[in-house]
Structure formats: C-alpha cells, structure tokens
Amino acid sequence: MEMPTYKNALIVGAGEGLSASLARLFAHEGIRVALAARSIEKLGALCAETKARAYACNAAEPDDVERLFGLVEREIGTPDLVVYNAGARARGPLIDLVPADVAQAIAVSAFGGFLVAQQAAKRMLPNRHGAILFTGASASVKGYAQSASFAMGKFALRGLAQSMARELSPQGIHVAHFVIDGGIRSAARTEPADRPDSFLDPDAIALSYWNVLQQPRSAWTWEVELRPWVEKF
C-alpha cells in the first residue's frame, strides 16, 4: 500500500493558531513550508521557528495569487500540498450590511479559494499528485443570524471543494474540506476551568489534517467535521 509523500507546502491565510500548527507539523515532517498572508510582519517568529518563507499576497486578487505561486516555485519548489486557510466576514443585521463589505468577505472566503486552488491544480495535474485542503467552519453547513456574508463565503468554499474532489481525485489530487465546528483555542481564548477542552486545540486540528494527508488513495475522504467533545451539533 503506497503512502503519499509531500515535499513543498503552501499555506495561504497564514497567521497564529491553526496555520502556525500546520506549519510546525509540516516542517517537523521534513516538508518545506511557504506562508502567504496579506500582512507578513506577524510571521517573523514562525518563519524563524519552522524555516518557512513568508510572502505577501491578497488571495482575492488573481495577479497576486499567480505571482505568489511563481515566487514559491522559484524560491522553494513547486507546491504539492496547498492549504487555503483564509476567511473574512462582515457581521451585523442583514439590512445594515454594507454591500462592498459583503462582496469583500465573499471574495476572500470563496473566490480566493478558487484562485489558489486553480493555480495549485495547474501545477499538480502534470504529475498526477498533490493535495489541496480547505478550512471551513460551522458556517459551511449552518447559516447563523447576523452572519450572512460568512455563510455565503463558506458555503461557496465547501461547494468548490466538493466539485474539485469529484473532478480531480481521479487524476491523483486529494481534495479535502474541513468543517471546524467550534472555537479554536488561542492565547486570547482559553477555556474556563470547569469546561476543559471546550475549544479545539489547533495542534489537534493540524493532526487531523495530517491524518487525511496520509490516507492511501484507495480510501480518500473529501470532508471531515471536527468539534470539541462538548460542542452541540
């Protein structure tokens, strides 16, 4: 049974939390890591820790995304593992939302995912090998009140992932979507003493991503839901 291997990873929408956990895990497994974010100043410590390289990129801009992949190819290597972890939202009552803010939120959450996936797939198809992972949320399957833009963007991203999985899996590219159904633990968000492990640990989420990446092609999954043990669903 042949196990998949990866050499070069690109994480788009990088920051602290899940992206940082993924970067550390990939680097530990001997994978070269590139990190992309609109602002890369915050990534200095993570780059030093993981030997990753950081690239400024607006994921909702086609030219930026194309330039990003070109730079990563030249400076690190062609990505055979790509994670789309970017998202945005405009909160508030439906009638108060600013249309331009909603359009921007959908552009980052969904259109950016398409742009990144398109550039990744172009490079993976000739080798019939690679993995493209999308980070979703509770809003991928449930539209919450006063969160219309996030629901629209995450529903669209999930639809993109499902369509891609059906198209690209038979060509050797593993496409998977992760529904993160719950809050993610961070320095600013910790559990109360009487509710241990009530937030998702970003390292635990990263391990689930890695487990999916290690699936033999005879038993691929396209979607995983992750939630804390106390989360209602």
Rank of each mutant, 00 (worst) to 15 (best):
G17S: 11
A90R: 00
A110C: 12
S163V: 15
W229N: 09
A193E: 13
L18W: 06
G15F: 13
A27D: 05
D181M: 03
E231S: 09
L207W: 06
I184Q: 04
G87R: 03
M164Y: 15
D63Y: 00
L46C: 07
G172F: 13
S218V: 11
E16Q: 15
E29H: 15
S21Y: 03
P99G: 08
A105G: 11
S149Y: 06
A23K: 06
E61K: 09
A14V: 10
L115V: 09
R158W: 02
Y84N: 07
R128M: 13
T190F: 05
T5F: 12
Q215F: 03
I76N: 01
S163K: 00
F69Q: 06
L125K: 08
V33R: 02
L25N: 00
A27R: 11
A151S: 14
V98L: 10
P196Q: 10
V179Q: 02
L200S: 06
A204S: 10
T190P: 04
G70W: 00
A117V: 01
Q214S: 13
Q214W: 01
L226Y: 02
Y84G: 08
G87T: 12
L68A: 13
F134P: 00
I106M: 13
S138D: 05
V108L: 05
A56V: 04
W220F: 10
G15L: 07
S169R: 14
A206N: 01
G77L: 09
A161E: 08
V116R: 03
E2A: 12
S186W: 09
A27I: 08
A48C: 05
T221W: 15
E191Y: 08
L25Y: 01
A37Q: 05
G92S: 03
T135Y: 01
E2S: 12
W220D: 00
T5N: 08
E49F: 14
V65E: 04
I184H: 04
S149A: 15
R91L: 06
A52Y: 08
E61R: 07
R89H: 04
I40S: 11
D181V: 01
E167K: 10
K42D: 11
P126N: 12
S39W: 06
A20V: 12
G153T: 05
A48V: 03
E223A: 10
R189N: 14
G182M: 11
A139T: 12
H174P: 04
Q146D: 15
V102A: 05
F155D: 02
F150I: 00
T135N: 06
L213N: 01
P62N: 04
S140E: 06
R185F: 04
A20P: 10
R89Y: 11
L133P: 02
F26P: 02
L226W: 01
A88C: 10
D101Y: 02
A161I: 10
G92D: 02
V83E: 01
V116S: 07
S140L: 08
E29W: 03
V12M: 04
S21D: 05
F114R: 05
L226M: 15
F199E: 04
W220H: 01
A52R: 07
A137D: 13
V230E: 08
S149D: 03
V98C: 10
S109D: 10
G44W: 02
R227L: 14
P126G: 11
H129C: 00
Q104L: 11
E16D: 14
S198G: 09
F26C: 13
V72P: 03
W220A: 00
R128A: 15
S138N: 05
G70K: 07
A45Q: 13
R74S: 15
Y6N: 01
D96N: 13
A110N: 02
E49C: 13
C57G: 08
